[in-house]
């Protein structure tokens, strides 16, 4: 992990959350986050609303804090392509988190008729 870089993101995030941004700014961040999420291709593997696929784990509803995401995507050792700071800035990661946190919850499998029937078929 790049130590120099890490506190920078954290600081930005703390600033954003502590200052208490307006609803309009929130909405802007969500919109910017969605745009970035699409532009740099996160949606290809994680789905347009971060619900995940076999190519990329679900990023919501348990969204990681920005510094953890930054840490992961800048140094990912696994199947996920690394996103260096030249491709995705710390500020953009904060926007992505705002977007992911705005995504509505998915239903529970037992609340979906087809998926519920699957469980019953098994029994």
């Amino acid at each position: 992990m790049n130590i120099k870089y890490f506190p920078g993101v954290l600081l930005l995030w703390i600033l954003f959350s502590a200052v208490g941004v307006s609803a309009q700014e929130d909405a802007n961040a969500v919109e910017r986050g969605l745009k970035t999420f699409m532009r740099v291709g996160c949606y290809e593997c994680h789905g347009t609303d971060g619900k995940g696929s076999e190519a990329g784990t679900a990023l919501t509803p348990e969204t990681l804090p920005p510094e953890a995401i930054a840490n992961f995507i800048r140094f990912s050792p696994g199947r996920m392509p690394v996103y260096p700071v030249e491709v995705l800035s710390d500020e953009e990661i904060i926007d992505i988190v705002a977007y992911l946190e705005s995504v509505p919850l998915s239903p529970d499998a037992d609340d979906v008729d087809i998926l519920k029937a699957l469980a019953l078929d098994k029994k």
């Binding site: 789905g47 696929s53 679900a58 509505p104 998915s106 499998a109 998926l115 699957l118 469980a119």
Partner: peptide, 18 residues
Amino acid sequence: FEESRQLAARGWNSSPVS
């Protein structure tokens, strides 16, 4: 099987369709 069944519900109402 159960894990997959739970995961299948994620993004059930998304558009584009999951």
